[in-house]
Amino acid sequence: MIGRGAVDLSVELPRGLRLDNPILVASGTFGYGVEYSEVVDIQRLGAICCKGTTLRPRVGNITPRVTETPAGMLNSIGLQNPGVDAVVRKYGPTWQGWHVPVIVNVAGESIDDYVEVARRLDGMPGVAGIELNISCPNVGRGGLQFAIDAEAAGAVTAAVRRATELPLLVKLSPNVADVRPIARAIEAAGADAITAINTLSGIAVGPGRRRPLLGNVYGGLSGPAIKPVALRIVYEVAQVVDIPIIAIGGVAELGDVLDYLAVGAIGVQVGTVLFADPTLPVRLIDELADECRRLGLNSYLPLVGTALPKRSSPMSAPSSKGVEYRP
């Protein structure tokens, strides 16, 4: 029997973004929060990252847009959304009344796009923060180009930083050879936190093997299949930046949460598994508290970074042992 000792799962992110607990829901898998509000106690969540939002409305990609893969799924929705003004008008008043913070995921095709969306969100009641989606693999122009180059990632982060006082999270792409220079550039440009990772670019073959399955050919792979990749990236990034990291990638049970904490994440986002198990994030909050009690902890923070190599000095280079693909 687990004791009933008080456990405080709350965590303070920079710029006053306080989360009741480190279990968030990932962009694209929870809509604007309202859709699940009938069936899940969403106010208990650490935060909600809403669907990717762009300056102007976007029509999604050609169908089919989703398909299942081993322990995962591919999606190529294509950032379908009604545009930032419509999002704020439609959901802002609802979000304002919520206890749970809503972080708006922002996507764009140019630095000007990102800046303008951020400017319109700045000071908007109900918006608790921005997650910069510089890594969506499903749109032809923009998005990913900012995530694969340290200079571009730093430039877009810095430009958005100047446009808003909101807490700024930047979401990393796994579709790069070495993520560490990019993470460092994002930190140097003034990001408050890093979220990692976005989906991995992939394809599936269609019926009859005559063409790729997805209408857009390429899709983003998510779900438990990508967890080892996400773990590796969080592990690498945690050794080169000091800002908090929120991990994303196939969280399906408490063990996954604990693994991500161990490699340096201060929180996790639950994504793809939500579709089959909408109450999972709320259960994870309770299970994490139980785990802390079992360990005699009154906070989960001692569980963060336990599997990271000890830093001998702040300047020492991180180990890249095991990362053998790198030249």
């Binding site: 694209g28 898998t29 929870f30 809509g31 604007y32 859709e35 699940y36 669907k51 409305p57 029509v59 999604g60 050609i62 169908t63 089919p64 847009r65 989703v66 398909t67 299942e68 799924m73 999606n75 929705i77 379908q80 209408g215 579709f275």
Partner: peptide, 25 residues
């Protein structure tokens, strides 16, 4: 019928999908 992920209307995986539409199908 369509392949779906959320079933609730927010993931936009199951758009009826006509290429070239100016608004989401």
């Amino acid at each position: 019928e369509a392949h779906m992920a959320c079933g609730l209307g927010f993931c936009h995986g199951c758009a009826t999908g006509h290429p070239g539409l100016v608004e989401e199908s």
